[in-house]
Computed example of a mutant assay.
Amino acid sequence: MSTDTPWLAADEQIAWRTYLRGVAVVFEALNKDILDSDNLSLHEYEVLSRLSESPERSMRMSTLADHLVHSRSRLTHTVRRLEERGFVSRTVCEDDRRGVNCNLTETGWQALVKAAPSHVRSVREHLVDKLGHDQMIELGSLCAKLFDDDVAL
């Protein structure tokens, strides 16, 4: 072991592992709930949600990957599944023929509208109600410190 590495103190190590477990537990619960209620994965729901908030319900694939913090490959697989269900379509970017846009279809919009209430209930149950409003806002502020880019939430 290198002696010049500033190892985590015992309480920092506990906090780190607790953070990892907390994120995994919440993600798994949210993913299970939305799969059970709407036959969508949490990743698929997030793609639909981000597209719904974009101008013309469309976003360049590379930008969408950045917003979701997904690899291009992972996003491509998710979008392919959504495309097979008629929820999204892909088109060549008008301004840059090398790029591809992902577009929310009307079918995708309707799936999102149907899934949103149960997803919000799940977020409240597994996170907001457990933390309370103030700690939820604090969690958001703390997490914002973890990234230093200009990607819109």
Rank of each mutant, 00 (worst) to 15 (best):
S2L: 15
S2G: 14
T3H: 12
T5K: 05
P6L: 01
L8N: 07
A9C: 02
A10S: 05
A10G: 03
A10N: 12
A10F: 10
D11S: 15
E12D: 12
I14L: 09
I14Y: 02
A15Y: 03
W16V: 11
W16P: 00
R17E: 15
R17C: 10
T18G: 10
T18H: 01
Y19T: 07
Y19G: 07
V23P: 00
V25E: 15
V26G: 04
F27Q: 12
L30W: 05
N31S: 10
K32P: 00
D33A: 15
D38P: 00
N39C: 04
S41Q: 08
L42I: 07
E44W: 03
E44H: 12
Y45M: 07
S49Y: 14
S49P: 03
R50M: 06
R50K: 09
L51Y: 05
L51M: 08
L51P: 02
P55H: 11
P55E: 13
E56R: 15
T63Q: 13
T63G: 14
L64R: 04
A65L: 08
D66R: 13
H70C: 07
H70D: 06
S71F: 09
R74E: 07
L75I: 04
H77Q: 11
T78C: 05
L82H: 01
L82I: 07
R85C: 13
G86L: 08
G86C: 10
R90Q: 15
R90H: 00
R90D: 00
V92D: 11
E94M: 09
D96C: 06
G99T: 01
V100N: 06
N101P: 02
C102W: 01
N103R: 14
N103P: 00
L104C: 08
T105G: 08
T105N: 01
T105P: 05
T107V: 13
T107F: 06
G108A: 13
G108N: 04
W109F: 14
W109G: 12
Q110C: 03
A111C: 07
V120H: 12
R121P: 00
S122C: 09
H126Q: 08
L127D: 04
V128D: 02
V128R: 03
D129V: 03
K130D: 04
K130H: 13
L131I: 06
D134R: 10
L142S: 02
C143K: 05
C143L: 15
C143I: 10
A144V: 06
K145M: 15
K145T: 12
L146W: 09
L146M: 14
F147W: 07
D149A: 02
V151T: 12
L153D: 10
